[in-house]
């Protein structure tokens, strides 16, 4: 089977891999669209959640992993609790997002950057250093005035720290990152 305009054919292996992670066969979906109907972020999606499931049913790995929708899903679980076929769609979206990142498909670089800046902050200090996080993100994204309209007022509240809180167990946290990295390398 080949979709019009697509060069890749069906990738059943990919589908099986994803199915084992969400514990449901994508064939269960009968395309009722209830997941899409009250999805708060579907206005920003290129493929609606039921279309993502449809692409999965047709084994269209590349189209799925290229989709912007994966990046704009807020994992709010509305789709999951409403699905008449009990498919954990929110989980599906996050499993696909991780796979997209692993295979180098990034539909929104800003979101990728925000996520990675966040994780780096955890890796470095053990906790989130919010002022530093926003600063680093703005610098790296080149969007220097991002959220600048609320910045000064925020500072005035005195709630933001100017220096990070470094936890004592920073080395433990580092080790988690290191061990994960080496175990991932070992698998490849």
């Amino acid at each position: 089977m080949r979709l019009k305009g697509q060069t890749r054919t069906v990738d059943r292996e990919f589908v099986a891999e994803v199915e084992s992670e969400i514990d449901t066969a994508v064939a269960a979906c009968y395309q009722c669209g209830k997941c899409t109907a009250d999805c708060p972020l579907s206005f920003s999606f290129d493929y609606t959640p039921n279309q993502i499931l449809r692409l999965m049913q047709l084994g269209q790995k590349e189209m799925v992993l290229r989709s912007e929708s994966l990046w704009y899903c807020a994992t709010c679980y509305t789709c999951t609790i409403r699905c008449p076929k009990e498919i954990d769609i929110a989980k599906l979206m996050s499993v696909l997002l991780i796979k997209a990142r692993q295979e180098g498909y990034v539909a929104d670089h800003k979101i990728r950057l925000a996520q990675e800046t966040f994780v780096n902050s955890v890796a470095r200090y053990g906790r989130i250093f919010e002022a530093g996080l926003v600063g680093t993100y703005n610098l790296k994204s080149g969007d220097l005035f991002n959220n600048a309209d609320i910045g000064p007022r925020l500072l005035a509240t005195g709630k933001l720290r100017f220096l990070p809180h470094r936890i004592k167990g920073r080395r433990e946290i580092r080790k988690i990152f290191d061990r994960l990295r080496s175990s991932r390398k070992g698998k490849r």
Binding site: G33, T36, A37, D38
Partner: peptide, 12 residues
Amino acid sequence: VKGTDTLLGMPI
């Protein structure tokens, strides 16, 4: 009423 038109792929 929040629904979908799955034929258009749009929430309605």
